[in-house]
């Protein structure tokens, strides 16, 4: 059952469409940085950073490295802005709508009369999560491979935090100065997890809304509303100068694009969203009228 669902989720036109959409912006972000920072003339670059045959250190160099140019470290390009904004749509597009369609066309009746609902829901949940996660993971891999082929890696310097946009105390901040690739890996995994969560949220919404378009775009519109609400909450009710990011599409970025990422806030939001999605699927799905 799971294998069948996974096959239907991944080998589909909608999966390819979503993958193409997200990969387009991941590649455009890479092209932007390769055009801007890529070493076209390695000898000139070598001359610029070396003195008497040995490399001299300039605090500027780490700013223009792989760690600031990969999709999760990009804070400049148009492509990264669109990529992060479209994560809720890109993840939901491949397969989150399938339960709604299967119920509507009667396919679900054939399934639940041949197997248990729990098995069907588990297989569907796994397939929806995997399709959403892959649509985010593959563009990241392509982006990082492209960038690393042209832009060298350089250890970031903590003194330039204003430009790095990694504030002291923000989530996993210490890791970027000690184990930058672990920092990169953790953020990619967080993005992949949210790819799955957004897909599951759309899937969960299909138990409440009987409209396929509304199902796919509801998490996107809700995320926009959260983005607006957090500014509203902070400007009206929270006087503290330390403000934590509540909008997932912003805390998924490895740099603090607006507010700081707090690990406990991220964990709480993740648990709440995952709990809502999985809870809805199993509770509503178990009782949902199929026949």
């Amino acid at each position: 059952m799971i294998r069948n669902e996974l096959k239907r989720a991944v080998f589909s036109r909608t999966f390819l469409l979503a993958l193409a959409l997200m990969t387009l912006f991941a590649v455009l972000s890479a092209v932007f940085y390769i055009e801007e920072w890529g070493g076209y003339n390695p000898n000139a670059l070598n001359d610029a950073i070396s003195e008497d045959g040995s490399y001299r250190f300039s605090p500027q160099f780490p700013l223009y490295s792989l760690l600031s140019a990969w999709l999760g470290g990009d804070t400049l390009s148009l492509a990264y802005t669109v990529f992060f904004a479209l994560i809720p749509i890109g993840s939901a597009l491949p397969y989150a709508w399938s339960y709604h369609t299967e119920r509507k066309c009667g396919y679900l009746k054939n399934i639940v009369s041949r197997t248990t609902r729990a098995k069907y829901l588990t297989a569907k949940t796994a397939a929806v999560f995997t399709s959403g996660a892959l649509v985010i993971l593959i563009p990241y891999i392509i982006n990082i491979l492209l960038i690393s082929a042209y832009i060298p890696y350089n250890m970031p310097w903590a003194g330039f935090n204003l430009y790095n946009r990694i504030y002291f105390g923000t989530m996993w901040a210490d890791l970027i100065f000690t184990h930058p690739f672990l920092h990169m890996f953790l953020f990619v995994m967080l993005n992949v997890l949210y790819g799955g969560i957004y897909a599951l949220l759309s899937y969960a919404v299909s138990f409440y809304i009987k409209n396929i378009v509304a199902v796919i775009f509801a998490p996107f519109v809700a995320t926009l509303a959260v983005g607006y609400s957090e500014n509203l909450i902070y400007s009206r009710y929270v006087a503290t100068p330390v403000r934590f990011e509540l909008d997932p599409t912003k805390f998924l970025h490895s740099r603090s694009v607006q507010y700081m990422q707090n690990p406990w806030v991220v964990l709480l939001i993740t648990v709440l969203l995952l709990g809502f999605a999985v809870g809805t699927v199993y509770i509503k799905g178990g009782k949902h009228e199929v026949f």
Binding site: L63, T75, L76, T81, A85, L162, Y163, N164, R165, L224, G227, Y228, N231, R255, V257, Q258
Partner: peptide, 9 residues
């Protein structure tokens, strides 16, 4: 650098 885009929600 250091001034990321903030969307007009």
């Amino acid at each position: 650098m250091g001034d990321p885009f903030k969307a007009p929600y």
